[in-house]
């Protein structure tokens, strides 16, 4: 008798869930993300070994060394890749390494310019630097050509980019002193929302034998493991977690770390939903058979 009311309530919940499962899942995930973003949950996590390798490589560079950063993404992947770009740029500025930034994705140009300017401003305030475009970093912008552009950069970077994004001639630019082609970079990094990592490996890093690292959206991350095993990639950052890993190592919290509680909470929710759905399915089968 006492169990009647709870049983009726659970039956009602199950009926509602089975009638509108999609909408219920969306609402639950939305509420979980908002709640975990607003509530103070401190999560401690160890950076992945692959992210550690990328960080260690940048950290081992000397002031004045050059890193080529190819930001091949646009606003649709901003949530995952912009925090990575910011973290890597801040690291370069902190170390005095000169980032040379370019993109194959014309639709992301403003986003990449904003990343450079925001990271420079952060470095000025946080590390007491005076970062200046053309001296401490270059934003080359975009040129058409994709593979052809990389091949041209293998020969002469100034022929590929005669001016930077702000229309400053690259000839005689202080930030590019000592750089003629891709061979002169200590590291090439590709932050990619598409298939440019493979393109950079085949046409760029493999050809000139320069260490290569990548950062990708979580969707593309599993495709990168074969390149790690063949040592064509020294390491990579995968999705928002990759950005958070880098921020943890840099000790500069950004959007990556702030997104981790929400991501962890939604993962727990998804696991619970999978378990609940399986229990419901097997219970349905069991009780269905009993009735028969």
């Amino acid at each position: 008798m006492a169990l009647r009311i709870p049983i009726a309530i659970s039956k009602g919940i199950i009926r509602f869930l089975t009638k509108h499962p999609r909408q219920v899942i969306y609402v639950l995930i939305g509420v979980t993300v908002i709640a975990s973003y607003m509530v103070n949950i401190s999560l401690s996590f160890e950076p992945s070994p692959l992210a550690q390798k990328v960080y260690d490589k940048v950290d081992s560079l000397k002031p004045g060394d050059h890193v080529l950063l190819s930001f091949d993404y646009d606003p649709s992947s901003e949530a995952e890749l912009q925090p990575m770009a910011l973290a890597m740029l801040r690291h370069c500025f902190k170390k005095g390494v000169i980032p040379v930034v370019m993109t194959h994705w014309i639709s992301g140009l403003d986003l990449h310019k904003m990343a450079c300017q925001e990271a420079a401003a952060d470095a000025n305030s946080h590390y007491n630097k005076k970062i200046v475009s053309g001296r401490d970093y270059v934003f080359l912008g975009n040129r058409p050509g994709w593979q052809q552009l990389i091949l041209q950069m293998n020969e002469n970077i100034r022929a590929a980019f005669d001016k930077d994004f702000f229309d400053q001639p690259t000839e005689g630019m202080k930030a590019l002193e000592g750089v003629t082609s891709l061979k002169d970079f200590e590291l090439i990094v590709n932050l990619a929302a598409g298939a440019t990592v493979e393109m950079w490996i085949a046409y760029g890093s493999d050809k000139v034998d320069v260490p290569f690292a990548a950062g990708t959206t979580a969707v593309s991350a599993p495709d990168l493991y074969p390149w790690i095993q063949s040592r064509q990639l020294i390491g990579f950052l995968g999705g928002l977690r990759g950005a958070a890993d880098y921020e943890v190592m840099l000790k500069y919290p950004g959007r990556g770390i702030r997104g981790m509680p929400a991501q962890s909470a939604t993962h727990v929710l998804i696991v619970l939903l999978i378990l609940g759905a399986n229990v419901h399915m097997f219970a349905g089968r069991f009780f269905g058979k009993k009735k028969e």
């Binding site: 969707v219 959007r255 991501q263």
Partner: peptide, 13 residues
């Protein structure tokens, strides 16, 4: 799934 959730987190942020 992780990637799609990251996009949602980005928008919520």
């Amino acid at each position: 799934v992780m990637g799609r959730l990251s996009l949602l987190i980005g928008r919520v942020q």
